[in-house]
């Protein structure tokens, strides 16, 4: 009966999900793929412990139920050295294995570590605002709001800060989120391996418009397609220039900000935003 229920529940869940984007289990980049593998490994290791536990729980509870004439009753039975050694021993071994895996994987998946590649990485500076995302492409001199473009197969090194309450930058199909904080530049390296448009969002509450704070990360076919996009933005008459005044206007809280592209921005904008939050004397020493 209960097995049937579980089967029906699983089937129903699969039917519901099969045409939807289960982003984390559907990785489109190298980091997210490694994370799914890591998750599967950890889960299998846990199941090795959990299955015997549940089996024992069920079997012992059933066998020693009150009124079972076949069960022995020993009210003073209060321990067994070997069983207890096993209880401590088995989890210690499992956790020891998992610890080694944790140590190695934490270093491998360190968001600050640039992804190794023979291609030159693209640098993107990300600014969390109330309630939209600003992306600056310093090597290309363009910028965009609420839409991130990146080439497939090329690592993207993000520098992430906030001119808003603490936020977090996350593209689940591509992997690893990172906090965006005032006066600090967090780092994150991602690589998309498949063309497509992936939803990204803020995961850390940042005020009333928090739920609106999502964007699309568009992975373009290759570096050439990305270069073509940059050229387009620069030529497009609709693209504006993001000077300090335009930025100050953009910074004001707003919801449902449309995708915007800029064919250029005030030099040092990212540093200006960062230094706003640094102590005065510090900023002076660095010449701002």
């Amino acid at each position: 009966m209960s097995v049937l229920l579980v089967v029906i529940a699983c089937l129903g869940t699969w039917l519901y999900l099969h045409d939807k984007n289960v982003a984390i289990l559907n990785p489109k980049g190298i980091i997210a793929s490694q994370q799914v593998d890591l998750m599967a490994f950890t889960l299998i290791l846990s199941v090795i412990v959990v299955v015997p536990v549940f089996t024992m729980l069920g079997v012992i509870a059933w066998k020693y139920r009150e009124g079972n004439p076949k069960a022995t009753y020993e009210p003073d039975h209060e321990g067994s050295k070997w069983l207890e050694v096993a209880w401590w021993g088995i989890p210690i071994v499992i956790i020891a294995i998992l610890s080694v895996v944790t140590w190695i994987s934490t270093h491998e998946l360190d968001p600050y570590k640039p992804i190794a590649s023979d291609k030159k990485a693209v640098k993107v500076q990300v600014v969390a605002l109330q309630w939209k995302w600003l992306f600056l492409y310093p090597e290309y001199g363009v910028a965009s709001v609420n839409e991130l473009k990146m080439p497939v197969g090329v690592p993207v090194n993000f520098e992430i800060t906030a001119d808003s309450p603490m936020s977090a930058f996350w593209i689940p199909n591509l992997g690893s989120q990172t906090y965006a904080m005032n006066g600090m530049s967090s780092k994150l390296s991602l690589r998309a391996d498949k063309e497509g448009s992936y939803r990204g969002s803020n995961t850390n509450i940042s005020g009333e418009g928090y739920a609106d704070m999502h964007f699309q990360a568009v992975a373009l076919k290759d570096q050439a397609a990305f270069d073509a996009w940059v050229a387009d933005v620069k030529q497009d008459d609709a693209s504006a220039y993001l000077d300090q005044d335009t930025y100050d206007e953009l910074r004001k809280p707003s919801k449902k900000t449309p995708v915007t592209q800029y064919d250029g921005y005030a030099s040092g904008l990212y540093d200006t935003i960062m230094h706003k939050y640094m102590p005065m004397d510090h900023a002076h020493k660095e010449g701002h």
């Binding site: 994370q35 998750m39 998946l109 996350w170």
Partner: peptide
């Protein structure tokens, strides 16, 4: 089990929040 999953930083980077 779901807690041990999230205790692995590499997995938590995805599942956090």
């Amino acid at each position: 089990v779901t807690g041990v999953l999230m205790a692995v930083p590499g997995i938590d980077y995805q599942m956090h929040n």
